[in-house]
Computed example of a mutant assay.
Amino acid sequence: MSEALSPAPDSPTADPLAPYDAVVLVSFGGPDGPDDVLPFLRRVTAGRGIPDERLAEVGEHYALFGGRSPINARTDELLTALRSELAGRGSALPVVLGNRNWHPLLDDVLPALARDGHRRVLAVTTSAYPSWSSCRQYRENLAAAAGDALIVERVRNYATHPGFVAANVAAVRRALAGIATPPEATRLLFVTHSIPDAMARAAGPQPRPAEGGYVAWHRAVAGAVAAEAAPGVGWDLAYCSRSGPPQQPWLEPDINDQLAKLAADGVRAVVVAPIGFVSDHMEVVYDLDHEAAATADDLGLEFARAATAGTDPAFVAALADIALERAALARGEAVEPAVIEGAEAGRVVCPESCCVNLRHPGTPAI
């Protein structure tokens, strides 16, 4: 049991996060070294019938970085920052890390919390948007790990929170400041993880736009960031990390295809902003910093990559805000969710129709 865990407080009502008695930061996880890569990828793709030969090909991406994903170090930094922020708001609850796909695993962390006397836990996910892979799958994993021993509840989707947007605005401004090309020949390229079209259309609660909540939320965030960070610069939304069989439609355009189109249209510089990711991990450092940067170089495009939200103080404060918001709602208090103008707030309690699991629709979720 980690020393970071402590028994549930005797007087939970004294804590601003009551009725919760612990907080778990839920991340994707990643390999810590070369020997971890294949077991990690097997866990991520479990049940999909992907052969080890294909996983080994994907593992070559990790080999470029010593077999280590940057997500673990970045998540540890976020964990430290969130602990400090919540303590500054007056909370004494333990804040621990639980990963979906690598150690420390939710399957170990949540039972350990229960053994230490905790009974109601708040989950803060490092995924900001609605979809099965970015929301409901986290809820399914939390339900499986908690079993009957814990009540686990989750903060809402928060990409439209002003603090998340502010962190991305600051990152885009810094990236633009390093571009020598004039604004009229520069383009902002907002990027997120591609998902199957069918999953995208099923993202978010009913009623939802035809394109689904995943795409709609990304467009809302991209528009807000562009309007504040670079009102004179045009922007597009593109996707990275497509996988799955070629005959299955996934969200497009791929970032590399979009870079080629922009170059053909006369654009001379791009700022790539990974708004779909909370922190750097393999999809950012390989797909963007390595692959997309090489494509831009081949096309003669000046290229800059904006930072992810990471531990930007506005983002960390936003996570604390939504944690306290969820606690207030759990106490039965009225709360007005903070969102950017004209955007949708995440549902506090997701209905069954939200981000359905198209493969296994009956899978339990918190």
Rank of each mutant, 00 (worst) to 15 (best):
L105Y: 11
L106T: 00
L106R: 09
D107W: 04
D108I: 10
D108T: 14
V109G: 03
V109L: 08
P111Y: 00
P111Q: 08
A112E: 11
A112H: 06
L113P: 08
G117D: 06
G117N: 10
G117W: 08
H118Y: 02
V121E: 06
V121P: 03
T125S: 10
T126C: 13
T126R: 09
S127V: 05
S127E: 11
Y129H: 14
P130V: 00
P130T: 00
S131N: 08
S133I: 12
S133L: 05
S133M: 07
S134L: 03
S134N: 12
R136K: 13
R136E: 04
Q137N: 13
Y138H: 14
Y138K: 11
R139W: 12
R139D: 15
N141A: 14
N141R: 10
L142E: 11
A143W: 07
A144L: 06
G147E: 06
A149M: 08
A149R: 08
L150K: 11
L150E: 05
L150V: 15
L150F: 09
I151R: 14
I151H: 13
R154E: 14
Y158H: 07
T160G: 03
T160D: 01
G163M: 10
V165C: 07
V165A: 12
A167M: 10
A167Y: 02
A167Q: 10
N168I: 01
N168C: 04
V169R: 00
A171E: 03
V172P: 00
R174C: 11
L176S: 02
L176M: 13
A177G: 15
A177M: 05
G178L: 10
I179V: 15
A180E: 15
T181L: 00
T181V: 07
T181F: 02
P182V: 00
P182E: 02
P183R: 07
P183H: 08
E184T: 01
A185S: 13
L188Q: 00
F190M: 15
F190A: 12
F190E: 15
V191I: 14
V191P: 06
T192E: 13
H193D: 15
S194N: 11
I195N: 09
I195T: 12
P196L: 12
D197C: 07
A198F: 02
M199F: 12
M199D: 15
M199C: 10
M199G: 07
A200H: 00
A200I: 03
R201P: 03
A202L: 05
G204W: 02
Q206K: 12
Q206T: 14
Q206P: 04
